[in-house]
């Protein structure tokens, strides 16, 4: 009995430790700036929805006047960029992953590793040259340009996770399908992809979250027209002060889509990652 009680207390402590920041952000999002900045902080305040109203209406009242914010637009941009880059990555990455999993070709391992190594380089290293290229090519401040550069994040992820999944499928099953008289393309589409579906779903989800959370590429390579929520939240750092309440509300709103996705596909995610990535 005592053991059980101690375990419950310890678990509660751990949960509190991890959930506290989220809880605090939730609180902040329904507080006014004055309440937030009060010292010492207090849990007694009048909850308000004005932060959310300001975000959704796009009218931000500050001490020096009303500011226009494009937060809802940012949210839309995040969605476009996230979905766009994941789709492109799937289109390119899944066939590539299959090739790496099934065929041994010259430099194959090197190419696969090079693709992964993009994840090692700090983005700052390539940003400035990229900016110049993008301006020259007319890709600056376009969805296409950002989706392209997001491939640095999503493509390696999808490639490596899905590859592990393809490697787990028994080659005999594919050979059997070929021997039945089906072409290799049919085998890929009707055997390999359906069997790797959980892994593909997990990889896509993870890639989406990574794309959603990206900050630095969008900050440098786009204007507010294409910028996602991560960058959009910067607008609340105004000349007249930092609007913590709105930042918190923006955070809550921006977390909601990924949270829903993650909860919905949690089982897939864990299975997919532990099965595919570890073995691959």
């Amino acid at each position: 009995m005592i053991v059980k009680a101690v375990r419950a207390v310890l678990l509660a402590l751990v949960a509190l430790f991890f959930l506290f920041p989220i809880f605090w952000v939730l609180l902040m999002s329904v507080m006014t700036n004055q309440d937030i900045l009060r010292s010492p902080p207090s849990l007694i305040f009048e909850p308000t929805l004005e932060n959310y109203v300001a975000l959704i209406s796009g009218q931000l009242d500050t001490s020096v006047g009303t500011l226009e914010v494009a937060y809802m637009r940012n949210l839309m941009n995040s969605l476009i960029l996230g979905v766009g880059s994941v789709l492109l990555s799937l289109l390119l990455g899944v066939p590539a992953a299959y090739a790496f999993a099934r065929f041994r070709f010259r430099l194959g391992e090197n190419i696969a590793f090079t693709l992964l190594s993009f994840r090692f380089a700090p983005p700052l290293l390539v940003l400035l040259p990229l900016l110049f290229y993008f301006q020259q090519l007319g890709l600056y401040d376009t969805y296409f340009g950002l989706i392209w550069v997001y491939q640095l994040i999503t493509l390696p992820l999808i490639l490596w996770i899905v590859r592990g999944y393809f490697e787990d499928i028994s080659e005999d099953i594919e050979h059997a399908y070929r021997l039945d008289g089906h072409s290799w393309l049919a085998t890929f589409l009707r055997i390999a992809i359906p069997l790797a579906r959980p892994g593909i779903a997990a990889a896509a989800l993870l890639a989406f979250i990574f794309a959603w959370n990206n900050f630095i590429f969008a900050l440098i390579l786009g204007s507010s027209d294409v910028q996602p929520v991560t960058v959009g939240a910067l607008a609340f750092i105004t000349a007249s002060g930092i609007n913590y309440g709105q930042i918190a509300a923006a955070l809550v709103l921006s977390v909601v889509p990924t949270l829903i996705l993650a909860l919905f596909a949690q089982r897939y995610l864990v299975e997919g990652l532990s099965l595919g990535a570890v073995k691959g």
């Binding site: 028994s170 005999d172 099953i173 050979h175 059997a176 021997l179 039945d180 008289g181 089906h182 290799w184």
Partner: peptide
């Protein structure tokens, strides 16, 4: 797919 050869596998290799 063009050999007119069929095979039953040791591990069955069912879809």
């Amino acid at each position: 797919d063009h050999r007119d050869v069929a095979m039953a596998f040791q591990n069955f290799a069912l879809y």
